[in-house]
Design a protein around this nucleic acid. Sequence first.
DNA 1: GCTGGCATGTAACAAGTTACATGATTTT
DNA 2: AAAATCATGTAACTTGTTACATGCCAGC
Lengths: 188, 188
Amino acid sequence: MSELTATEAAVLGLLLRGGEQSGYDLSKNAGHSVGYFWSPVQSRMYATLPRLVERGLAVGRELVESNRLKQLYRITPDGKRALRDWLHEPPVLEPERNTFLLKIFLGGEAGANDETLAEHVRERRLLAERLRDELRAIDARAREETPHAALTRNYGLRWAEMVIEWADETERTLRKTAPAAARRTRGA
Amino acid sequence: MSELTATEAAVLGLLLRGGEQSGYDLSKNAGHSVGYFWSPVQSRMYATLPRLVERGLAVGRELVESNRLKQLYRITPDGKRALRDWLHEPPVLEPERNTFLLKIFLGGEAGANDETLAEHVRERRLLAERLRDELRAIDARAREETPHAALTRNYGLRWAEMVIEWADETERTLRKTAPAAARRTRGA
DNA sequence: GCTGGCATGTAACAAGTTACATGATTTT
DNA sequence: AAAATCATGTAACTTGTTACATGCCAGC
């Protein structure tokens, strides 16, 4: 009956993990868990929570904390059921959407500067490295909740490693064709 | 001045490659090139093309072909310039968005059936295999336009391979914890 | 006294999705 | 004769993004 959108599922998932939380908390903490796969922006969060309450998937309660009004939300049994049902439905295939690769792909025919594209690749490599290190650090702490978090973390690690390798190869290829002068930008 | 959205860039990229084309053609052919990274749905295509014309990035012309009115579009020098400029800007980091991984991640705490999750993983493995084979086939034909297409294809290949490996490991882990009975569903 | 963080939202807009409307032509 | 494909769009709706408005409190 009550089909969830991915955003709603992500919010329910956050509620499931953290217990009673405010929209502000949820937005702030999303990054460390569900946020690796789906993080609604703050305004969407505030729009989603009351709708979950309307449908009985969450309950809210007001709290006055140091003279500030706070709305705290908690998932209901119905919410848990709806989330579980959603998990069991086969995931819909999202259309590919990757502006970064689009830029590389079109670079040749559009006559882009390969040196600039190589810089883009380098930037992405950096991001992948950062993610890899972050995930490794979490792995090291390793107080495991459920095996599932480790499974997706493993996905992230493999992804990061593959991006790094690809980036190295790609950067080399792009710089080979680009004029040598620009190489100095990279500086030692 | 005329900043492009990723959708506009994708459409311009398609025009760049195929020469003069109709909205219908563009939608249909997107899959084989730019579509790996960005494919606007048909309705968006029809909305985007006139706007590109308004801004002088493309020109349209009417053609009557077998009693049917057809709008043909072509990229202009301004369009090429705008696209090239867009390629040179550092790509914006898209927020992660992966419902599939979200489902696996939440599976543990939401009390999902691991056997069902394993099926999801299996499905994704299949998709990755299909992509891998498709890209390998293109590689084999290998009448290379620019090196750039090969670079992004290489990304796709590495990605597919990593997903396959991850899926194998993940499926095994999930089935290990799941009750043996369900294994029969996979049936030989 | 000012900055930054806490806290909740609204408004305006851009982008994407799905379904529908329309009608011709080509293929089976 | 029916089904598929060509061809162009509109309408309604959902998401997501960015910017803004408001005001309190804690620490420097």
